[in-house]
Design a protein around this nucleic acid. Structure first.
Length: 772
DNA sequence: CAGATCACTTAGAAGATAGTTA
DNA sequence: TAACTATCTTCTAAGTGATCTG
């Protein structure tokens, strides 16, 4: 099968839907969706698993689910907030208790032994700064490692592997549980003494590349033993517009008070953005803006359409222009200031190591930019103050100081969580966190673990597939639904699809929350039977559109699920993510719906890399193959991007370059020919030299041309596909590392600096024969 | 047991920077 | 040497899923 059933016809879903009175559907319709082309369908086709046919069973009818739920009014956002407030106090009390107890029932002695000694702030602070500043110095490093060796400390480095070989293996197996072996354990069996003997610099480097993956993991559920940081960086306070920058109402200049002006500038900044043309955005903005106005302003300003923010907009444009035009010196100064801030606030100390913080800046106030048709777009995101922030750190660390004259909301010491600070955001009432960078131990370990879980799924996926196929025949509706949903999750890499509160967010769905209106069944379509067409908005309101032939039994089940339902009813009315995950948990420890995405993504990459392997390819061609494999995954996971605005142009530029190069090549070839003739005639050294030169030139140009052509292909195929997300979140980096090693491709061709930092563990541990 | 809450991962867009070219 | 553009980095929204709670 192939992609020829793709869609020049993106309206396919408007056919038989009959009445258009369902709000969900309407919402979808005025959206512009990003479409994918045939390629994608084709790729998907390739990627699916085998199938076979079974006979179908009849089934008892299911009851309709209570639809009232879907219909309650949603004008209750204020009520909602009140609720939040009231509950706040309660919540905090509860939490306090929780933390207290978690501290109490911890074996105190061990803990204190653990870190008072090892990670006292003083020990780290006293590190000589010249030592590149970032990392604890070698001396410290060594000391702490030695102390690590004391019994009962859990983060035992394995550098002393010779002595702790058993433990080393134990940990490995804990994770991998693979039939694999020891050969994985690398020969870094340096002895301590040897290390001491090594130069300071060497040791420094080693610390720079702390190999947390060679150490033991904590087993007691605590995420750290010691945590010290300086708290977040706050957004600078609002600066008034210069007087010359005027706001006009109804054509007349009007001076706004600071709060109203600030909010106005948020809007003014965005004037070029499509958001500001959307009704909901404008309505929400206007409503929140008015809250900042004085009563005088309120009575004057009664219509957003009469507001003119264009001078503000010009001002910001000029400002950013000016920034670009700044002299080198000025730019450097800013850079240095940023660097200083990063040094001071961008790192924390967690268990002996200086680790990079992911987002140490508090989100500045502004207008909420929800994705898709978000009902709250345009609302004011309020400024976060110290008294909104909860700090999390070690009791015995130097606590971060709030800015002068302010207080933190709370300082707590919860080592069951990984965040350093948190606050509650005012749009959805959700909690935001400050956490560590992906290169940190705490993130890396989790990431590694994620791929190990996916590898465990690999071992039992056949069994699970057999089982859900069996379940398609179940007498119970809920089991059939569960089985069909799981099939979609497995085959199509759909997300789980938690329920969401209606009216609070954009209307998007995942597998379990699919509605009748999101699929269409075609018993026959062209040369295929039992085709299901999916058309819905997924995470970030990215459209998922796909037509796939399914097994007859699945098809019949779907027909059954659709019986007597309205378009806005749930397709799987007897299923939700928690039911599904509970079931999965029983099938394999740690299995949840999202593991399938990870598994299928990684296994696809591995397969594709094998298939596309071509040993004789040039380096760029190999990289292209890799990108193609990556792309297959991105397509599977539906990772899309808006085609870059300059795409067409940049494609053209590239083509021009190619043409030029081609001309160059033919010119060089001519010259080579001439040189050959020359040499034949004279047979002297000089002509020989020239001949060689020309020959090399041709070769060089030819390579350059190839490279350009490959680049063009790659870019074209990438037009609306985003590779980054899968590379960063779904593909076991060890597959890529192994591939690089096998084909002698420098890892830099695949991962940039940030990515190499994130995947340092994989780069260090994967050998060329690594199997996912 | 359903809904709320919390912590954490996954996501595309925007913004910043680096590299290239006119 | 500015302008352009490709790539990297940051930002923060939007998911998942575990746990708590009434």
């Amino acid at each position: 099968m192939s992609g020829d059933h793709g869609h020049g016809d993106s309206q396919v879903n408007s056919g038989s839907k009959g009445s258009d009175t369902h709000k969900h559907k309407d919402k979808h319709k005025d959206k512009e969706h990003r479409h994918k082309d045939h390629k994608k369908d084709k790729e998907r086709e390739k990627l699916k698993h085998g199938n076979s046919e079974h006979k179908d069973h009849s089934e008892k009818k299911h009851r309709d689910k209570d639809k009232e739920k879907l219909k309650h009014s949603n004008g209750s956002s204020d009520k909602h907030k009140e609720k939040h407030k009231e509950k706040d106090k309660d919540k905090e009390k509860r939490r306090e208790e929780k933390i207290k107890s978690s501290h109490v029932d911890k074996p105190k002695k061990e803990k204190e032994n653990g870190y008072v000694r090892d990670t006292s702030p003083a020990a780290i602070k006293s590190e000589p700064e010249e030592d590149n500043g970032f990392y604890p110095s070698p001396q410290h490093n060594k000391t702490s490692k030695r102390e690590y060796d004391d019994e009962e400390f859990e983060y035992k480095p394995k550098k002393v592997k010779t002595e702790h070989d058993k433990k080393a293996k134990k940990r490995k197996h804990e994770y991998e549980e693979d039939e694999e072996e020891d050969e994985d354990i690398k020969p870094k069996k340096k002895t301590k003494d040897k290390k001491v003997a090594e130069g300071k610099k060497a040791k420094k480097e080693e610390e720079e590349k702390w190999k947390w993956w060679e150490e033991e993991r904590s087993t007691d559920g605590s995420k750290w033993r010691f945590l010290e940081h300086k708290g977040p960086v706050f957004a600078p306070p609002y600066e008034r517009m210069p007087d010359k920058v005027k706001f006009y109402y109804d054509g007349k200049p009007m001076k706004l008070n600071a709060p109203a002006e600030e909010v106005a500038t948020f809007f003014g900044k965005m004037l070029d953005h499509e958001y500001t043309t959307k009704d909901i955005f404008r309505k929400n903005f206007y409503k929140d803006w008015r809250k900042e106005m004085t009563s005088e302003e309120k009575s004057k300003i009664t219509d957003l359409n009469k507001c003119n923010f264009s001078e503000m907009n010009d001002f910001f444009k000029a400002q950013s222009e000016a920034r670009k035009q700044m002299s080198k010196g000025e730019k450097l100064k800013i850079k240095e200031e940023n660097e200083r801030l990063l040094q001071e606030y961008g790192f924390c100390i967690m268990d002996n190591h200086k680790e990079r913080i992911g987002n140490f800046r508090i989100e500045p106030p502004g207008l909420f930019r929800g994705r898709g048709d978000h009902p709250k777009m345009g609302m004011l995101k309020r400024c976060i103050r110290p008294q909104d922030i909860i700090i999390n750190c070690s009791k015995d660390s130097k606590h971060p100081k709030p800015p002068p004259g302010t207080k933190w909301k709370e300082v707590r010491h919860d080592n069951k969580v990984t965040w350093l600070a948190s606050w509650t955001e005012n749009i959805q009432g959700s909690i935001k966190y400050i956490m560590l960078n992906p290169s940190s131990r705490i993130k890396g370990e989790k990431d590694w673990q994620k791929y190990e879980t996916a590898r465990r799924l690999k071992k039992c996926v056949d069994r699970i597939r057999t089982q859900y196929r069996e379940d398609w025949k179940s007498k119970e509706m809920r089991i059939r639904q569960r089985a069909v949903a799981l099939y979609f999750i497995d085959k199509l890499a759909l997300r789980a699809g938690n329920e969401k509160e209606e009216g609070e967010t954009a209307d998007t769905v995942g597998c379990c929350s699919l509605r009748v209106e999101h699929i269409k069944l075609y018993p026959k379509m062209d040369d295929q039977e039992y085709v299901v067409e999916f058309d819905f908005l997924g995470k970030d309101s990215i459209r998922y559109y796909n037509k796939i032939p399914v097994e007859k039994r699945v098809f019949k089940n779907l027909q059954l699920f659709l019986e007597n339902k309205q378009p806005e009813d749930d397709l799987f009315d007897r299923l939700n993510t928690s039911i599904l995950n509970k079931h999965l948990q029983e099938l394999m420890d740690g299995l949840t719906a999202k593991v399938f995405r990870t598994y299928n993504a990684s296994i696809t990459l591995q397969q594709q890399l094998k298939e596309l392997a071509c040993p004789d390819d040039s380096l760029p061609a190999k990289v292209l193959s890799y990108n193609r494999a990556n792309r297959a995954v991105a397509i599977l996971c539906n990772h899309q991007r808006a085609p870059p605005k300059t795409f067409e142009k940049s494609m053209q530029n590239l083509q021009t370059k190619i043409d030029e190069k081609q001309n160059q090549l033919s010119a060089a070839r001519k010259q080579l020919k001439a040189a050959k003739a020359d040499h034949k005639a004279s047979h002297d050294d000089k002509s020989k030299k020239i001949l060689e030169m020309k020959r090399k030139a041709v070769q060089r140009i030819d390579e350059q041309l190839m490279k350009l052509q490959v680049q063009a292909t790659d870019r074209e195929e990438n037009k609306q596909i985003a590779l980054g997300t899968s590379k960063l979140n779904y593909l076991d980096p060890r597959i890529s590392v192994a591939w690089c090693k096998k084909w002698v491709v420098p890892i830099e061709k695949i991962y940039n600096k940030t990515q190499r930092e994130k995947f340092a563990w994989a780069i260090d541990m994967a050998e060329k024969d690594y199997e996912f």
